[in-house]
Simulated assay, not measured.
Amino acid sequence: MPTPRLLARALAALALALATVVALSIPASADPSWWRGPAPTQASISAERGPFAVSSTAVSNLSTPGFGSATIYYPTTTTAGTFGGVAISPGYTASESTIAWLGPRIASQGFVVITFNTNSRYDQPASRGDQLLAALDYLTGSSAVRSRVDASRLAVMGHSMGGGGALEAAKDRPSLQAAIPLTGWNTDKTWPEVRTPTLVIGAENDSVASVSSHSIPFYNSLTNAPERAYLELNNASHFAPNSPNTDIASSSIAWLKRFVDDDTRYTPFLCPGPSVSSFGSVSDYRATCPM
């Protein structure tokens, strides 16, 4: 039998080996101090609500500099540290209500989310990009929940012209950690200026912003983004993002977690990504495989 001293040495060596394996499994760029919530599963990122209880507060357009009235959704906990912030814009002629479902769904996964009405329902993508950035500045600078938000970890999303606005915002503010255009529309089809990890979500049957002239060219042109992915919703229309959609939610949550929270536990949901099938809900998926 080994002596107590030899047994102690063996246990110490085993502990060191396990610590080394754990350290090697986390890339040097990852910062676990930003991770929020338990280890994810496909069920957890697809669920209508995540692990955090959420509250919301309405903001009058009299209080919002640079954008319209808004709603802020935030985790109620005050013991989990600060959270990343996400701003979401609606599309052309649409109101905040069309993208409101994303607010509590994303916030419940550990983010502070602001959804808003644009100054005018006819605002073009460049204006919507400015409003996305103004919403983030309000969220982190003067909102009632500003102390809950980490101003260095921010992201933008948007539908249609709001998606085009998300690309505009990422171009204008390279410090953003993630951008997600949802069936995005923009007259500008090329985005080599963007240096933000970007998930482009298109819809196969989009007759307003067809994937062949919008989402796919957007994705192909993001050559300077450190990571990019393209997800195409099978048999879906331009307006798929206007109602709860599990593929939009789960892929967006994984993207935000991976790049806003630097949470490498979400990498397997993005690389290799969702399965593609003519009988499934995803008709195309491409990615640079973030690691």
Rank of each mutant, 00 (worst) to 15 (best):
Y92W: 15
I216H: 11
A209R: 01
V59K: 04
I253V: 15
Q177C: 14
S250E: 02
F218T: 02
G81P: 12
A47D: 01
S25D: 08
T20R: 10
T79R: 14
A17E: 10
L16N: 01
D247H: 06
C289L: 08
S69Y: 10
S69T: 10
S281E: 13
A134S: 15
W35M: 00
S56W: 07
S147N: 14
L14N: 15
A12C: 13
A249P: 08
G66S: 03
D130I: 09
S60G: 01
A151G: 15
D31E: 15
A178G: 08
D263V: 02
V86D: 10
S25I: 09
D123L: 09
V211K: 00
E48F: 12
P274T: 11
S55Q: 04
L132R: 00
L167N: 14
R258S: 14
I248N: 03
D206E: 06
P181A: 00
R265G: 13
S89H: 08
W101K: 04
F83N: 06
A203R: 04
L7S: 14
S152L: 08
S207P: 07
S120D: 08
G110L: 05
S221W: 07
G280M: 02
N205S: 10
T93D: 10
L136A: 11
G110M: 05
S221Q: 01
T78M: 07
Y219L: 12
S215T: 14
G68W: 08
E96R: 15
I106E: 09
V276A: 02
A43Y: 04
R49D: 06
W191G: 03
A209T: 02
N61F: 13
A166Y: 09
T71P: 13
N235I: 04
R49H: 14
V149N: 10
T64F: 15
S25F: 10
F269A: 13
G81H: 03
N220Y: 10
W191H: 03
R228V: 04
G129E: 12
P65C: 07
A8C: 08
S44Q: 12
A13F: 13
R195I: 07
H214T: 14
K189M: 01
S212V: 13
L270H: 01
F52N: 01
A107P: 02
A12H: 06
P32E: 04
W101A: 05
P197T: 12
A100V: 10
E227Q: 14
S152P: 04
T198Q: 09
G164Y: 00
T20Y: 02
G91M: 03
R128Q: 12
I45V: 09
C289G: 09
A170Q: 07
I106F: 08
G158H: 08
D31W: 03
R36Y: 02
L139Q: 01
S56I: 11
L270E: 05
C271W: 01
E96H: 12
G66M: 06
A254D: 01
S160H: 05
D130S: 11
P75D: 03
F218Q: 00
V208H: 08
T82W: 00
S221N: 12
F67D: 00
A10N: 14
D188P: 04
F239R: 11
M1S: 09
P217Y: 11
H159Q: 11
T196C: 05
I201Y: 00
G50I: 04
I99L: 00
W101P: 03
E232C: 06
L16T: 14
